[in-house]
Simulated assay, not measured.
Amino acid sequence: MLALEFVSTVRATRSGPVDTLSDVAGMTAWAREHAAGLGIGPGFTATEDLRREVVELRQAVRALFARAVAPDPASGADAHRLPGFAESLDLVNAAALAVPLAPRLEWPDAGAPVARTVPATEAAWSPRIRAALAASAIALLAGPERERLRTCPAPRCVLYFVKEHARQEWCSVGCGNRARAARHYHQHKAR
């Protein structure tokens, strides 16, 4: 899900928080990795202006995710730095409207038909990328997945995830292991 991948560009490692989009090289690499969802080619190269605009959009989407998981706590990565709800909602909606998107059917000679979402009009990279990201966030937040959106409660984790089954508590097996190890440590330390 592109929206989750997008907000997960802020994550935590053993050495602290990491922002994949902290520089133009990181933005370029992340965009190329998600080229199909963003409607860009493999030769795409980000600019500093695009990176700043995408990071601003990411913070707005993270603010909307924080609202979606309430009353549970928001991600600890940046909850104190998120823009306000109304401002975030306006920014996401404006980004989605900047470039109308439309489905396009592609049917290769030796394969099954595939639907891709593409810009309905020609547009510069920045509005195209931000429109695709905003549309993905809107689809997640307005769809049934919103009810299953969670913040990972594992120590040091700052990710959002969509709960796939009733017993899922963490975003990954690694986070579950880390949470259980921390709980075990605290139980035995108290003795």
Results as ranks from 00 to 15, higher is better:
His186Ala: 15
Glu53Tyr: 02
Thr47Met: 07
Thr47Ile: 01
Thr47Ser: 15
Gly16Phe: 07
Tyr185Ile: 14
Leu21His: 04
Leu97Pro: 01
Thr45Pro: 01
Thr45Lys: 11
Arg11Ile: 02
Leu38Pro: 08
Leu57Met: 05
Glu56Tyr: 00
Glu122Leu: 08
Leu105Ser: 04
Gly176Val: 12
Asp19Lys: 07
Ser8Asp: 15
His188Gly: 12
Val114Met: 07
Asn177Tyr: 10
Gly39Lys: 05
Asp90Lys: 10
Arg11Asn: 13
Pro103Arg: 02
Gly26Tyr: 08
Phe6Trp: 10
Glu48Tyr: 05
Arg14Ala: 15
Leu149Phe: 07
Ala154Lys: 10
Arg130Trp: 05
Arg67Tyr: 06
Ser8Gln: 14
Gly16Glu: 10
Phe85Pro: 04
Gly76Met: 02
Ser22Leu: 01
Pro119Ile: 05
Leu21Trp: 03
Val10Trp: 14
Ala135Cys: 09
Arg58Gln: 06
Ala98Met: 02
Ser88Asn: 06
Ala68Val: 00
Phe65Leu: 03
Asp23Met: 03
Ala96Cys: 08
Thr117Ser: 09
Pro100Trp: 04
Ala132Pro: 04
Ala66Thr: 00
Ala120Cys: 08
Leu101Arg: 15
Asp90Gly: 10
Val18Asp: 12
Glu106Cys: 01
Ala74Tyr: 00
Asp72Arg: 15
Val158Trp: 15
Thr117Ala: 02
Pro71Phe: 03
Arg130Glu: 13
Arg191Gly: 10
Gly111Trp: 04
Val24Ile: 12
Phe6Arg: 09
Ser126Phe: 00
Leu82Arg: 01
Val7Cys: 10
Val18Trp: 11
Leu21Phe: 08
Pro155Asn: 11
Pro155Gly: 13
Pro73Glu: 09
Gln187Gly: 07
Gly176Ile: 13
Ala86Ile: 02
Ala102Lys: 15
Cys152Pro: 11
Ala120Val: 02
Pro73Leu: 06
Cys157Trp: 05
Ala181Pro: 13
Arg51His: 02
Ala142Leu: 14
Thr151Ser: 14
Ile40His: 00
Ser88Leu: 03
Arg62Pro: 00
Thr151Gln: 07
Leu50Thr: 09
His186Ser: 14
Ile138Glu: 05
Arg11Gln: 11
Leu38Gln: 06
Ala3Ile: 10
Thr121Leu: 10
Leu57Gly: 07
Pro127Trp: 03
Val69Gln: 05
Leu64Gly: 03
Arg178Trp: 11
Pro17Asn: 12
Leu133Asn: 04
Pro83Thr: 05
Ala60His: 08
Ala36Met: 05
Arg146Ile: 04
Leu133Ser: 06
Ile138His: 03
Leu105Ala: 08
Ala77Trp: 05
Ala35Gln: 04
Ala181Tyr: 08
Asp72Asn: 11
Ala12Val: 06
Leu101Phe: 08
Arg156Cys: 09
Arg167Tyr: 12
Ala35Leu: 00
Pro71Tyr: 01
Arg116Trp: 00
Gly39His: 09
Ile129Pro: 00
Ala124Gln: 09
Ala29Thr: 13
Ser75His: 02
Gly39Trp: 06
Ala102Trp: 01
Ala77Met: 01
Ala96Lys: 09
Leu38Ala: 08
Glu106Arg: 10
Arg14Pro: 08
His188Tyr: 07
Val92Trp: 07
Ala29Lys: 12
Thr117Asp: 06
Glu169Leu: 13
Ala68Cys: 04
Pro155Arg: 14
Val24Gln: 14
Asp109Pro: 12
Leu105Ile: 13
Ala115Trp: 13
Arg104Pro: 00
Ala29Arg: 13
